[in-house]
Design a protein around this nucleic acid. Structure first.
Lengths: 353, 353
DNA sequence: TTGTAAGCGTTATCAC
DNA sequence: GTGATAACGCTTACAA
């Protein structure tokens, strides 16, 4: 090939058949083709090095084989792993994935939804970053099937794949309570999405079940980064009756908590128990004091894409089916309630500042 | 819209103009349109909620606004950050990114290259995972501009964005030598790509400059994961004359080294200096003993995509221009050569096993 | 079993 | 300044 694009017609001419026949061979249907003809055509395709034009196909079919994936931040291992699961299933099913990075911005989500519609995508996998319904409405208006992942949006009826965040919060709290902790600090995110709200409900339910009174002062809000955990820990340890254990939002967050604790002279877990929900850390050896609830990110990507492809193929209406992936508590060290002495000590240290 | 797709014709009819006029307004050219007409049309677009069909456009233009991105593993922060840079520049320039995950497999790269060609992509950003030239040849055959990132392929003439891996290896080695280390262990990858070969050259050059004899026994090969560092460290510490410092492939790897060292009762960095090239760890507080050379991953993504877009627009022939992003040594702790006692101790411990 | 041809929604080259 | 119309490469209903 030089200037001219190689098309199905070229293949047909070379093989001495009609373009339609070439189509039937490439698509393996819907019409049957004689073996001898098939042979000739496949030979011609090979010799010419022909690649079918997916764009022309999409135009004709009014639908491309592209799946849109909208994630808030690919740098975050959580989302990156979901993306990997999506890509895997897509690849296996001959779909391609357009990567859309919302950067936690609603207007970018919106811009991407329009772009995806413009590309006639077959469907969309979406980890939303707000409770805004407009992007979802737009997708519905154009009859694009979509699956929400990790968070659900109130007032949006659509299939969703989430993890059992309630259980995540419940299990980790229950574990700490079983070790004797009564004052358990909790780091919540500052934005209200379904996932963190569910986790907090789990935390409260576990406390209630154990007849531990819920103390709002033990709940602090922040982000999920290392520095947020660091700050949250300092905040929690400076209150009147400081916690003996802290539940962080995720590992990154938890390491921040641990670093703050170490800086204050507290040993983890002897003086302060630290637990995380969602294991982001790559090292399985480096943070023995840390107990976490594992979130199956890759599996969420897999499950959501399988579901989406079903929706695409069946073209059934998307009803709201919420599928929960199970979570697993991973206890790395069990330490019961520390003597309160070091905490008191720290408290006074902080007050002196 | 219900069953029927909303097209440019609908807009034209509604606005009482011809479809061509609508085109000129949407594309802002190549023909001028009277302001009053423009107003009418924009109004109609808004009222109908019309989205242009990118697929039809791509077919007509013989080229889509999609950029293919081939990366080995999105779970690895390194590649995920490159991807983020790519996506950002693409978004700013109205390109979309198809995410292709090669899983380090040459045949998957190949499959994706064909898929991308089929989608009439405008160009490809590619982090290759082997020295195989076939995928590159295929891209050239279809006149697809592409940019290699992080690694170059011998015998493939194409623009490449890499970091100065030689400097990375050189600087970190020089730093350790300046602390007095003479026996510096080096963990190399087991696959030969340009990046690790360049780093090793840097290591050797720094040794030579300091008149330290290169000892092949101090170089061990493995992967870049945590466990690989762990194993490599044990291997390096068990040789006749064990190193007093170890250069790991990246942070993940380095933490494995540290964990192995800790397990053997060695304190880092007092008893063993550990350095990494490429900071993957999210925590800036947690690993104070670790000195690294930072690799600007995001910036590589940015630079490569800017270059690719230039190639796409200028449609200039891709010559081999290798652009190096600079690297920065980040010293977190400086410890000179430890007494050899603990090393000896460990050595005998290992031998006893 | 195979060939012919209409049409998918654009863009661009004609006319007017 | 604007309107008609011929491609772009493919799928598939309809002929043969």
């Amino acid at each position: 090939m030089v200037g001219k694009t190689l098309t199905r017609n070229d293949v047909a001419r070379k093989a001495g058949v009609s373009p339609a026949t070439v189509s039937y061979i490439i698509n393996d249907g819907p019409r049957h083709v004689a073996d001898s003809t098939r042979e000739k055509v496949l030979q011609a395709i090979k010799e010419l090095g022909y690649q079918p034009n997916a764009v022309a196909r999409s135009l004709r079919m009014q639908k491309s084989n592209i799946i849109g994936l909208i994630i808030p931040d690919n740098k975050n291992t959580f989302f990156a792993e979901v993306a990997l699961g999506v890509e895997q299933v897509a690849f296996e099913n001959n779909f391609n994935v357009i990567m859309c990075h919302s950067a936690y911005k609603q207007e970018r989500e919106m811009a991407y939804v329009d772009m995806l519609i413009s590309h006639q995508v077959a469907g969309v996998i979406w980890i939303p970053c707000s409770q805004d319904v407009r992007a979802a409405q737009e997708l519905k208006r154009f009859h694009k099937p979509f699956v929400l992942v990790d968070r659900v949006i109130s007032n949006v009826n659509s299939p969703s794949i989430v993890v059992d965040n309630f259980q995540a919060g419940f299990q980790v709290t229950q574990h700490l309570v079983s070790l004797g902790h009564q004052k358990i600090g909790y780091i919540d995110r500052s934005v209200d999405m379904s996932n963190n709200m569910d986790r907090l409900r789990g935390y409260r339910a576990a406390l209630e079940e154990a007849n531990v009174k819920f103390d709002p002062n033990l709940v602090t809000r922040g982000g999920f980064r290392h520095e947020d955990g660091y700050a949250a820990c300092k905040r929690l340890l400076s209150i009147q009756d400081p916690p003996t254990a802290i539940i962080a939002y995720n590992d990154m967050n938890a390491i921040g908590v641990m670093d703050a604790a170490h800086e204050l002279g507290l040993r983890v877990p002897q003086d302060l128990s630290v637990a995380g929900i969602d294991n982001l850390a790559f090292s399985k050896y480096s943070f023995p004091p840390l107990t976490t609830v594992d979130i199956p990110k890759f599996e969420m990507g897999i499950a959501s894409t399988k579901l989406l492809i079903e929706l695409i193929k069946g073209d059934s209406q998307s009803e709201q089916i919420i599928t929960c992936c199970t979570v697993h508590l991973k206890v790395r060290s069990s330490t019961s309630v520390p003597s309160t002495t070091p905490i008191r000590l720290i408290k006074s240290l902080i007050e002196m500042e």
